[in-house]
């Protein structure tokens, strides 16, 4: 089975500290890591390769420093990788991101299965997996928590829903996004780490992928960010004084007034 795992490099939220003045995360000296949810995708691919054999390719779009992440993926046991990198890719929304990733999948000659993490921890959209499946005309199952059966032409997976789960048969080629329950990521192997040392990620830009500049990056995006602001702006932080009894009653009144607690629903 030929498996492509989509990875995203994100800022490491575990290494950040809170700024005591602005109450925002301080990100100086940002460490960049593999999106934690993508580690579950990687783990799912490794489990599948153990079960049915085959090859795993890691695919990412990002700045040049994302090559380091692909090297890390090799350490986990991935066979090869491809970095989609071009200044023209910057500022991509999920539509423009899937344009580049779909071209990357084609560049790699397609796959029997594409595995994505359920979402990235920086954007939290969960849109790239399903969008990519649509771009490639592939069937999809999102939020997969277990793979029950793996055959050459189909998978049987458990899809997490809000009210439980469903057992779904997915024909291949296809795409899945996976959640944490798929299994804790294994640590990188010694053999993998040795290979990673020598690994140089191949890089493809827009031209090599046959993409025009207006199909990718900010220019190729439908959505635009028009305003960015801090949540809970100054003045929204309030200490409720007084004896415990009064403060306890006051906080409920505030939450009701703010419509955080809905009465009679």
């Amino acid at each position: 089975m030929k498996i492509i795992v989509c990875l995203k490099q994100v800022p490491d939220t575990a290494s950040v500290k809170l700024d005591p003045v602005t109450h925002t995360l301080k990100r100086e000296g940002v460490a960049a890591v593999i999106n934690p949810f993508d580690l579950f995708a990687l783990e799912a691919a490794l489990q599948l390769r153990e079960r049915v054999g085959g090859q795993i390719l890691a695919l990412t779009m990002g700045p040049p420093q994302a090559a380091e992440m692909l090297r890390e993926a090799i350490g986990y046991g991935v066979d090869d990788g491809l970095l989609l990198s071009d200044r023209a890719f910057a500022g991509a929304d999920t539509w423009a991101t899937t344009a580049a990733l779909a071209a990357g999948v084609r560049h790699l000659g397609g796959a029997d299965l594409i595995v994505c993490g359920k979402q990235a921890v920086d954007g939290d959209t969960a849109q790239v997996g399903p969008g990519l499946a649509m771009r490639l005309g592939l069937p999809q199952v999102a939020f997969v928590k277990a793979i029950r059966e793996a055959a050459a032409d189909h998978l049987v997976v458990e899809r997490q829903m809000d009210d439980g789960y469903e057992v779904v048969s997915l024909p291949l080629p296809g795409l899945i996004t996976v959640v944490r329950e798929i299994g804790e990521p294994r640590p990188p192997s010694l053999k993998g780490k040795m290979r990673a040392k020598k690994f140089e990620a191949p890089v493809a830009g827009a031209a090599a992928l046959g993409l025009a500049e207006d199909q990718v990056g900010l220019r190729g995006s439908f959505t635009q960010v028009v305003e960015v602001f801090a949540p809970g702006a100054a003045g929204q932080r309030e200490m409720l004084p007084g004896p415990a009894e009064a403060a306890g009653r006051a906080v409920i009144d505030r939450l009701v007034a703010d419509k955080v607690i809905l009465l009679g629903s």
Binding site: R237, E238, L263
Partner: peptide
């Protein structure tokens, strides 16, 4: 440190504060 991120903060004994919260909720409902 939790008060630095709190929308509403109460410095007090939770065993007195929480029963008051519960009582107020019951009243309003």
């Amino acid at each position: 440190p939790i008060f630095s991120v709190a929308t509403y903060g109460i410095v007090g004994n939770l065993f007195a504060v929480v029963p008051a919260m519960l009582a107020r909720l019951k009243e309003l409902r």
